[in-house]
């Protein structure tokens, strides 16, 4: 079994009835750090944290999937999340974009479809 950690309200709204969702009111970096905390606790990363080619300083929405089972520290998961955080910080140090509501809706939709493709692969 798996949990989707997300800050995207659309993912919560559309998937809450069929998936285990941990919705958090935080930014994209906050979601990645929460995932890293769980990886340190022995959970395994199941979807890629840099899913999609929308850059981390463009969109603020992120959903990722992590295992419910705990085991020894998974070094592959840790390597991927650390690289993703490093990349995200690099982009956040460049420029952050400010968007209108329509663009934010688009980014929610894109993030939703990216995590949906991971859910479809898991089933």
């Amino acid at each position: 079994m798996a949990t989707i950690i997300t800050n995207n309200p659309l993912v919560f709204e559309r998937m809450n009835s069929r998936c285990k969702i941990d919705f958090r009111e935080t930014d994209l970096k906050g979601i990645l750090i929460e995932a890293r905390n769980r990886i340190h606790a022995g959970h395994k990363l199941l979807s890629h944290p840099l899913s999609g080619s929308v850059k981390p300083n463009e969109t603020n929405y992120k959903s990722l999937m992590i295992s419910d089972e705990k085991a020894e520290l998974d070094l592959d998961s840790l390597g991927i999340i650390e690289s993703a955080i490093e990349t995200t910080l690099k982009f956040l140090n460049m420029k952050e974009y400010k968007w209108d509501i329509k663009v934010l809706d688009d980014f929610q939709e894109i993030d939703f479809t990216l995590i949906s493709s991971a859910v479809e692969s898991m089933i």
Binding site: L45, L46, S47, H48, S51, G52, M65, I80, L114, I115, S117, A118, S121, M122
Partner: peptide, 8 residues
């Protein structure tokens, strides 16, 4: 280039 790590 899929999102799900097992696909990768």
């Amino acid at each position: 280039e899929n999102v799900f790590l097992a696909d990768k």
